[in-house]
């Protein structure tokens, strides 16, 4: 089978992965090819990435498994990242992380491993005060250069506060779901089902909206 990651990209990713701190485990949820057109390519892409560092590993589970319920995974392909203690920090991807979302994927791996860029103190204080359940959905397309910024922020917020879940949703794969959220431009950020942000916004705007709920 032809590789999705070219030699050139492989070299860049390997360079980046030198900065991985702790091991990270990917748990991928798939369905039969007949109902999930992008499951196979997703499995292949993630597999090729995992090959590039011995700090990375992957496990594959069917969508109708207990494990999927445990991580509240309802779509396929979807995957979550676990830290070196096997702990889930509510970082989820729904859909293949190709195109521009490859950047979001690699960033999430780096951050989950502990290679984290610190946020300013003032933002961390505000973030620490969030004590209600918050779900952040970021709808993207793979051709959208502004989308990874929004995805990375949602994931970062989730990693830093246990009440927050951050998920990327690839709008083309999950077209009907996107329609139901009336996604007509990306990135579209939906917080707790009803509150919306348009475009890639600074972390402050995420927090403003979360605090107002």
């Amino acid at each position: 089978m032809e590789k999705m990651i070219t030699k050139d990209i492989e070299k860049q990713v390997k360079d980046l992965f030198k900065g991985l701190v702790n091991p990270v485990r990917i748990v991928l949820f798939t369905q039969d090819h007949a109902v999930c057109e992008t499951c196979e390519p997703t499995e292949q892409l993630l597999g090729e990435v995992v090959e590039l560092s011995d700090k990375l590993s992957m496990q594959i589970s069917p969508l109708d498994s207990e494990l999927a319920k445990q991580y509240d995974v309802t779509l396929a392909p979807a995957f979550v990242l676990l830290d070196h203690n096997g702990e889930y920090h509510r970082v989820k991807f729904n859909g293949i992380p190709a195109g521009h979302e490859f950047t979001s994927f690699l960033t999430a791996l780096m951050e989950m491993s502990g290679a984290v860029e610190d946020l300013p103190e003032a933002l961390l204080d505000r973030l620490a005060k969030i004590d209600k359940p918050v779900n952040i959905k970021v709808f993207v397309t793979l051709m959208c250069p502004h989308c990874p910024g929004a995805v990375q922020k949602a994931h970062k917020l989730a990693m830093l506060n246990k009440n927050i879940t951050g998920e990327m949703i690839e709008a083309q794969t999950f077209y009907e779901l996107s329609e139901s959220y009336r996604v007509s431009g990306v990135p579209k950020i939906v917080i707790n089902e009803t509150h919306e942000l348009v475009g890639n916004q600074p972390i402050e705007r995420f927090l403003d909206l979360i605090e107002s709920i």
Binding site: T141, M143, C144, P145, H146, C147, A171, Q172, S178, R182, V183, S184, G185, V186, K188, E196, V198, G199
Partner: peptide, 16 residues
């Protein structure tokens, strides 16, 4: 804006 009006065709075309 973001309810049908878009400024990035390459980003948003797949939604239509």
């Amino acid at each position: 804006a973001n309810a049908g009006v878009a400024y990035c065709a390459i980003c948003d075309a797949p939604l239509y």
